[in-house]
Design a protein around this nucleic acid. Structure first.
Lengths: 123, 123
DNA sequence: TCCATAGTTCTGAGATAATAGAATTATGTG
DNA sequence: CACATAATTCTATTATCTCAGAACTATGGA
């Protein structure tokens, strides 16, 4: 991940409503949630929610697909992981023995990436 | 960390210049860097840099202290860690066996928190 | 086809943030 | 004290974001 896309993701998350949406999707896991369900749980007006989902999506933080009349949104775990990795990159001024576990953790968390076939077995 | 302060930190980092500053400070480690040194390395005008350092500071992402004519800025590793923890909290819809390593990593990275006495030995 | 449901897009007013020039404060040195 | 250096604060212009009302598109069922 480079600076531009990291900035895009971070500023997308730098908004209370969008952060709440993203965290809700993260906790919902790979199954995701319909837009209406998100609106209900967070008490958001449909058009605001839609605009904010669009911003999260342009920042590659969510994916979506239509299911009948609903549109299902999911957190994009691979972007999330890449973002965290970018943020803490070169942590502690090149003392890898301290932050190595972080990198290891991040590489393991990569398995949470929303590849449909792997999601059910892993998550 | 709650939503409000996480949002503050994320929107502070959602700006290309500030993200560059923060990452430079993260890679500089607990020693930190003088404002002028940051300006030189990133090619920023002093007043813009100052404004952005102020925003990072209000978001608890940096600490600073005066050293002669210079002011030394450091990344606040404890906020960074808390922020990452908040972001990936409840990852994968309650399948802790997948994301447990992440939590472990984050708790280990806590040791990078800028407690001056521990910084030298740990980082 | 007609209607209800689910979401999205359009729009404009108000608020907030970014930028850089100029002036100001604080520190150290001759 | 006078001067240079290091950073910050002030200021005004410009650009961007936010929000909700209203209209629009897409899907499924009677």
């Amino acid at each position: 991940m480079e600076s531009k896309s990291a900035t895009l993701s971070l500023s997308a998350l730098g908004h209370e409503g969008r952060l709440a949406i993203f965290r809700l999707l993260v906790s919902a896991g790979p199954t995701g949630l319909a837009a209406g369900e998100i609106a209900r749980q967070l008490g958001m007006v449909p058009n605001s929610l839609s605009a904010n989902l669009n911003i999260l999506s342009r920042a590659n933080l969510t994916t979506s697909h239509r299911d009948g009349r609903s549109i299902i949104y999911q957190a994009d775990f691979s972007t999330m992981t890449a973002l965290v990795g970018f943020l803490v990159g070169d942590c502690c001024g090149g003392a890898p023995e301290i932050c190595a576990p972080l990198n290891q953790l991040l590489s393991q968390a990569q398995q949470c990436a929303p590849t449909p076939s792997r999601q059910k077995e892993l998550c």
